[in-house]
Amino acid sequence: MASGHRSILIAGAGATGLAAALELARRGFLARIVDSDAGPVPLTESRALGINARTLTLLSPSRVTDTILQEAQRIAHFRIVSKGRLLADIDTTRVPGPYSAIHALAQGHTERLLLGKLSDYEVAPEWQTAVETVSGDLSKPRVTLRKADGSVEAADFDIVVAADGAHSAVRRAVGIGFPGQALESSFYLADFRYAVPIDPGFAEISLFDPGMIGRLPVTRDVLRYISTLPDFESRIQHPAPVAERVWASDFRIHFRHVAMMARGNVFLAGDAAHIHSPAGARGMNLGIEDACWLAWLISEGREREYAGLRMPAVKTVLKQTHQLTSLITMKHPVAIAIRNLAVPLLLRIPAFRQKLLHGVSGYDTQSPPWIDGAL
């Protein structure tokens, strides 16, 4: 079907919206994409870092995967340490398929790579353009847009994709709730650049019983530390002299998802539909997965199946991330002692270790039927 046969608006030009636009474009559907921000997320302020094997598979037909692999850091090992004792060292390369379980690349870089490929189809986001209302018959929704100069435009679309984040204006406009809960404790993060290159090939969680500090590679000379401890920066054991503290932030973790991922011809994807802990690096990946499935279903004229196909994946990932978060945020001494004893024992069991890697790779959700040989 030619692009002119269906008018599609994508609200949100983050990784989810850009992936949706790209997957639609390569199938002949040139969507209009708008975003209230002035441009992609700053390179030094990217919350999402992990790109899993499922995402690399999904983005392989558009060749974005090739460019990601040129820039990303492969995380070959994941380590868990408690009071100086190594509890686990998981080889993340031991997964089936052509890709390792997880790579690290700042969200800002990923978005710019998607933008570059999207430009090949002469599609570009309309920045500083916000969705104000979505109204009328949602089988052909009418959307009001406010542009940077203050002017207002109203237009009808055959399909609207809400990829506009956790505070989605589209989701609110069509009356879809966003129930869930927030964790009591806050999380803190800081990125440090080092004077010399460091080893970017592993990620590590240090358990302080209670509390934790996670170490994640960003580039060959930048590491991210994420923690439940307000004073975590004083506890970091830096691997080399620090050149600069690049960025710091704090946030609360929420577990929320919509009851329905579509209403009429308005479809929710990414953080507009679900948010959860960063444990397992599933957030951006799950949004890209939503986007790719929706684009394929639209091209097949089967978009009505989207909500039914995606909700099981959303629930799987929220359950997994909640379990992982609970493991690293324990406070009760008895529970901590049991965890520290059980984790090394469980990870010696091949089936348990493979199940964990299966989830980290993103292979615990439905395989994309449009990609031959996909796991």
Rank of each mutant, 00 (worst) to 15 (best):
M311S: 02
L297E: 08
G301A: 05
A337K: 13
G301D: 05
H322R: 10
N285Y: 09
A279T: 14
R304I: 05
E289V: 15
S299P: 04
S326W: 10
V314G: 00
M311K: 06
Q320S: 12
L327H: 03
L309G: 13
R304Q: 10
P344I: 00
G301C: 02
L345F: 01
N285F: 13
L324I: 13
K315G: 05
Q323S: 14
S299N: 07
L286K: 02
P278G: 03
G287R: 08
S277M: 08
M284I: 09
L345V: 02
L346S: 04
E300H: 08
A342N: 02
I336A: 01
E289D: 10
I336E: 01
E300D: 11
M284Q: 12
R302Y: 02
K331S: 11
P344E: 01
C292V: 14
L324A: 11
L341Q: 15
G287Y: 08
M330L: 12
E300K: 11
L341P: 02
N340L: 02
A291P: 06
S299V: 05
V317Y: 04
P312E: 14
P344N: 01
Q323R: 14
H276L: 05
S299A: 12
A279E: 01
S326G: 15
L341W: 14
E303H: 11
N340D: 14
P344C: 04
G301W: 02
L297C: 08
A295G: 13
A342E: 01
T316L: 11
N340M: 04
T329L: 07
G287E: 08
Q320M: 14
L294I: 09
M284F: 09
M284G: 09
E303K: 07
Q323W: 10
V314W: 00
R339G: 03
I338P: 05
P278M: 01
G301I: 01
A291V: 10
K331Q: 15
H322P: 04
V314R: 00
I336M: 05
L294T: 02
K315S: 10
L297N: 03
L294M: 13
L341K: 11
E303S: 09
L324E: 15
I288W: 04
Y306F: 13
W296A: 10
I336G: 04
